[in-house]
Design a protein around this nucleic acid. Structure first.
Lengths: 359, 359
DNA sequence: ATTGGCACTCGGAGTGTTCGAGTGCCAAAT
DNA sequence: ATTTGGCACTCGAACACTCCGAGTGCCAAT
């Protein structure tokens, strides 16, 4: 029993099926690949591969197609990744030269990845849990409505409108701003959450109105903001910090799904539906993060989400900090060109990482 | 020749075809609609309708289906819009009660609209050209890199990272902030653009360094930011103002397209592609704004963009200011339920408008 | 203007029939 | 023990053919 030839046969089947989208027969394999054996031998091998669950027959008198398990075996044994072309490399490098605007960069990246792979590409906002609060701006809009803006030293900006019970004039706002900044500026985002803030508020109350309230006391009564107002702003800040963590995903290339996706047929709608639920995608990426591999691949039903049962996902980590969970991924039909996709994902992740390091 | 009955026949064809997705024959019309005439009469009417281009036959021995022109006639003559159900009304009202966060509200709106119509829904960010600059925040990040944040009194926030030639310390930043705010705060966004700013810079230079430079002169030489730095920040502000105008579109319900979209077949990919190009959608909406109607409808090839040649778009204006170009729209197959769609679009536009008024 | 009648068209569904790619198995060869 | 050639077998795709009926257009009668 020739074990390595069986692996070759499997590889041939995967490659040919990916290329042609038609079941692969024993004769075709002998022709397209130089294995030096006759079709009959291949047939024996195929029978065994089928018994082991790596390949299947759509119907009795047809060739074989890989099962999820077959793809898995293929992916695990990939020896050489298809290197990117010169043009592709150049395209990736241009990414790095672009402006240093994070949003714009991610947007370009995801489009590029979609273009390179002809699949759907996803990219997760890089998480910067180490970031600190740089500044909190409080701006009055209409009466009783203020805009709270959180700015971190990583350059993230989050804003939120807060409705107050009282009208606060410009002086009052200045005081609020001062106090809130004194409280939060410089703190790690990761150390701000509802609990710590609650404690802080309690502590303050117990200590019998410390500095900040003292400041207020010096001023004319009009412009002293009520404690309730401060509390609301404080809550807003906590929400904003949470929003910072709430990760977002940008995607591109859904049209590719429709193209290569005649094979999905009816299945497309649920996939698109899942795309609209960021939560689903986040779950997907986080679950893949747990693989702790440079590149992780989910094939067909390996994806727990039912809608993705005939798609595969190739994901990689990117960003400066090891252990940070920012990821980018490509999603396409199970029948995808894994070597190319994987190397594209890997390359893009690498270059984006270095671009992030630089700026 | 009974003109009004011909209109009725056309209406019957549209309604039945929308309902069943099958060509409508003369007999079927007589059965489903009480027109009080025989099939033969209908046939005569149909022959004429076909001659006039309102309906067509897929093949000789089949019923008729509406042409784009037929749908157009139907839409123009819609007398009664299907009122929304109680549940639908309630769903819309809940929108209004939600939080006052603009982003979140738009997001919920577009999802609701997609749900109500079972189509793709689009909503354009409301344009607030009347807004004024409320505050500009300048925050130092790493050395030589600052984040400029523009805040308007309409609650919009735009940010951008600027790379400077020199390192600026905290005092310098404070000075820049002061000067930039003196220059821009309170100004209408619509009155800020590259030209006016250029003039301003020129004037300043001609007048021999007025107030702002004077302020700088008082201080220790270290923390005086170079003019070049100020100029870069100024450019950033102009960019941010431009970004404010650059309208964005949120969409939801692309999955609906795939569902009802078996009829598109191959056509889906270009549509999805167009969706990814915000520019295309913006063009679409702006061109529809020119209709100056409460509701405007583009049917099939009336859409100039080739990809949308078998889809229809129903759009409405929303937002407080008349003449403002904020729009929301629904896009679906030409064969859509126009009365329902139109009334849903109208209702949502109305409620969103009032919600915006309120907060 | 409307209607019933009638001949006509033509797509779709159903039924065979053929064709060939592909298989499994077995006995012979290495 | 593995490989191979040979052979019978299976079954889907493609094609040809028929039949049916929905739907039409036209015309003469009302």
């Amino acid at each position: 029993m020739n074990d390595s030839r069986r692996a070759q046969v499997l590889r041939a089947i995967v490659e040919d099926f990916v290329a042609t989208n038609e079941p692969v027969g024993s004769k075709a394999i002998v022709q397209r690949h130089t294995l030096g054996v006759s079709p009959a031998t291949i047939r024996n091998d195929m029978a065994q591969l089928e018994a082991e669950g790596y390949i299947a027959q759509p119907h009795t008198s047809a060739g074989r197609i890989p099962t999820d398990l077959g793809y898995r075996m293929f992916v695990d044994r990939i020896d050489e990744f298809k290197p990117l072309s010169q043009a592709e490399r150049r395209a990736i490098l241009q990414l790095v030269d672009g402006e240093s605007d994070l949003d714009g960069m991610l947007d370009r990246t995801v489009r590029l990845l979609a273009g390179l792979t002809h699949q759907v590409a996803l990219i997760q906002y890089p998480m910067v849990s180490q970031a600190k609060v740089k500044h909190i701006e409080v701006v009055g809009l209409a009466a009783g409505r203020v805009l709270v803006v959180l700015i971190t030293d990583a350059g993230q900006v989050e804003q939120k409108i807060v409705v107050l019970a009282e009208a606060v004039d410009e002086d009052g706002l200045a005081r609020i701003r001062e106090r809130i900044n004194a409280e939060y500026a410089g703190r790690r985002l990761s150390r701000i959450d509802a609990r710590t803030s609650q404690q802080q508020t309690d502590a303050e109350a117990a200590a019998g109105t410390p500095t900040s309230t003292e400041t207020a006391r010096e001023d004319s009564a009009d412009s002293v903001p009520a404690e309730a107002t401060i509390a609301r702003i404080r809550n807003a800040v906590i929400d904003l910090v949470a929003a910072t963590r709430e990760e977002r995903i940008i995607m591109a290339g859904t049209a590719n799904l429709a193209r290569s996706g005649q094979e999905f047929g009816e299945q497309m709608a649920p996939i698109l539906e899942a795309f609209e639920e960021q939560v689903v995608l986040l779950k997907l990426l986080t679950s893949m993060a747990e693989d702790h591999a440079e590149i992780s691949v989910r094939i067909g039903r390996e994806n727990t989400h039912e809608s993705f049962s005939s798609t595969s996902v190739v994901a990689a980590e990117y960003g400066r900090v090891a252990g940070s969970s920012a990821r980018l991924a490509v999603l396409g039909p199970t029948r995808m060109d894994y070597p190319t996709t994987i190397s594209a994902v890997r390359a893009v992740a690498k270059y984006v990482s270095s671009a992030l390091d630089r700026g």
